[in-house]
Computed example of a mutant assay.
Amino acid sequence: MALKELQIRNIRPTDKVTQCTDERGLYLEVHPNGSKLWRYKYRYMGKQKRLALGRYPDVGLAEARKRRDDARRQLEAGTDPLAERKHEKLVAVFKAANTFGEIAKEYIDKQVAQGQADTTTQKANWLLEQLEPIAARPVADLKPIDVLAALKRIEAKGKYETARRCRSFAGRVFRYAVATGRGESDPSSILRGALVVPKVKHHAAILDPKQMGELLRAIDAYTGHAITRLAMQVSPHVMARPGELRMAEWSEFDLENAVWKIPAERMKMRRPP
């Protein structure tokens, strides 16, 4: 006989677990502590199984029947509702552990392990902070519109170059997610023309030979740290970036032939984002 709401409210617990049957496999399991749990009993592939449908009164009679009917439809389609629920929970756990932020941190750690410079690592972490609106979202769920909204939020502050760098960084994270089997595509790749292109600002340069001589003499007269003075004196002769000069190793120098060879791998790893 089908249960009624009034009947359910008046059920009193006993010293053992009891079952109050509704219909079509649905029943209410009443525990000695007073808790009432909805269960759905069914058979799949010849085996008796049961599916938890919620706690009464959080799940009322009508909702319990609806959930039972949903499970029955899964059975009719050849799917085990209990196995399907376990699968959904695993997918939810997988997605929660594979957010954009978590994968970005993993990507940065990988770059550090490969020898990335501290300054580049700091920049990458800073860019990740700017992308905070999507950091907690599962990578697999992010769409181009989600990434664009985060970038436009940065643009709204007038930080056009930052937005461009964030798009580039996000692209690397998405591609890393794809390579490690946790993403399907790079939603940032189609946003190249969607951002404001920052106006190039040219910095002043010394073009007058006399002024250049004054600069070189000022470097020679520098009274600060000797290593700093030597680095500045070497810099005009090699035209390298400050980071390359600072991180140079003796094994890279051929003093006999006056040649400095910077490994291509190290140059690539130190390239700013």
Results as ranks from 00 to 15, higher is better:
Ser168Glu: 11
Lys157Asp: 07
Ala96Leu: 11
Gln74Met: 15
Gln130Trp: 10
Arg266Gly: 06
Pro13Gln: 07
Gly46Ile: 08
Leu148His: 09
Leu37Gly: 05
Leu255Ile: 09
Ile190Tyr: 14
Arg85Val: 06
Gly224Phe: 05
Tyr176Trp: 13
Leu128Asn: 00
Pro209Trp: 06
Glu84Met: 08
His237Gln: 01
Asn10Val: 04
Arg167Gln: 10
Asp220Ala: 08
Lys89Thr: 09
Glu161Trp: 01
Asp80Leu: 00
Val93Phe: 13
Arg271Ser: 10
Lys210Cys: 02
Ala179Gln: 09
Leu37His: 13
Arg50Asp: 08
Arg217Asp: 11
Ala258Val: 04
Asp186Phe: 13
Ala221Pro: 01
Pro187Phe: 14
Ile103Ala: 14
Leu131Met: 01
Leu255Tyr: 11
Trp126Asp: 05
Glu5Gln: 10
Pro209Asn: 06
Gln19Phe: 13
Tyr176Pro: 06
Met212Asn: 01
Leu127Phe: 00
Arg67Thr: 08
Ile262Ala: 07
Met269Ser: 15
Leu255Phe: 15
Tyr40Val: 01
Leu75Tyr: 08
Pro236Leu: 05
Leu195Met: 10
Ala231Val: 02
Leu191Trp: 10
Asn98Val: 05
Val197Phe: 10
Arg266Ala: 03
Asn125Leu: 13
Gly183Asn: 12
Arg217Ser: 06
Ala77Met: 09
Ala52Met: 12
Leu37Pro: 00
Arg192Val: 15
Arg167Asp: 00
Val259Arg: 11
Gln48Tyr: 05
Ala248Trp: 05
Leu26Arg: 07
Ile108His: 02
Lys157Trp: 00
Ala92Gly: 06
Lys110His: 13
Thr180Asn: 15
Gln116His: 06
Asp186Gly: 12
Leu6Gln: 10
Glu63Gln: 11
Pro81Trp: 06
Glu155Lys: 11
Pro209Arg: 06
Lys152Ala: 07
Lys143Ser: 11
Glu249Lys: 14
Gly60Ile: 04
Lys110Val: 04
Leu245Ala: 02
Lys157Leu: 06
Val59Pro: 03
Gly158Ala: 02
Asp186Lys: 12
Lys49Gln: 14
Met1Asp: 04
Pro198Ala: 08
Ala104Trp: 06
Glu252Met: 02
Thr14Ser: 15
Glu84Ile: 02
Asp70Ser: 14
Tyr44Pro: 01
Arg217Val: 00
Leu142Cys: 09
Lys159Gly: 08
Arg175Pro: 07
Pro57Cys: 13
Ile190Val: 15
Gly60Gln: 00
Arg165Leu: 00
Leu51Asn: 03
Thr180His: 15
Arg50Asn: 12
